[in-house]
């Protein structure tokens, strides 16, 4: 049996290792996203079909992540999906006529929102709305169209 002092040192090291591992999990593996959410502003976009888009999916512009999807709900009047995006505060000069489309990373990968920059000088304000949207590509529908197209 190790001496009392050594036992205490080892137990201290053990607990420290456990806490360090917890830090690694939170910072490196989860990216510690919720614990210190970057300041940002919300904009809304309506889509006919969001496909497999999920909350917290990335929002990219020119391939750079600029925010994430905050919430997805069905708007019961328009019968469209109302998607709230949260854009990081530092990207506050996104043009007002910017368009949004839902893309898929890889053939079966995660879905994300890509922003297509517009031309206007006036930026998209907090609480603003993205007018120009393009729905998710639903694989079944494409295949269906392809099949009927072949039949013609």
């Amino acid at each position: 049996m190790a001496s009392q002092r050594m036992i205490e040192i080892w137990v201290g090291a053990f607990v420290a290792a456990g806490l360090a591992a917890l830090m690694v999990l939170a910072l490196q593996i989860a990216g510690l996203t919720e614990l210190r959410p970057p300041p940002g502003y919300q904009v809304t976009a309506y889509f006919d079909n969001v496909g497999g888009l999920r909350e917290k999916a990335p929002v990219n512009m020119a391939g750079v992540r600029v925010g994430r999807v905050e919430s997805i709900q069905l708007d019961s009047e328009r019968h469209q999906a109302r998607v709230v995006l949260k854009i990081d505060q530092r990207y506050n000069r996104i043009p007002r006529d910017t368009g949004a489309a839902i893309y898929t990373a890889g053939l079966l990968g995660e879905q994300y929102i890509g922003l297509e920059a517009g031309w206007e000088d006036e930026p998209l304000a907090a609480g603003g709305r993205i007018e120009n949207t393009q729905s998710a590509v639903v694989l079944e529908r494409i295949i269906g169209q392809f099949m009927t197209g072949m039949g013609d």
């Binding site: 939170a26 490196q28 593996i29 989860a30 990216g31 996203t33 919720e34 917290k56 995660e110």
Partner: peptide
């Protein structure tokens, strides 16, 4: 490798629940 992981793993849903 890391960025895919970080965008998918959530502290509350995954790490806390596993804990």
């Amino acid at each position: 490798f890391w960025s895919n992981m970080q965008s998918a793993v959530s502290v509350r849903d995954d790490i806390l629940n596993g804990f």
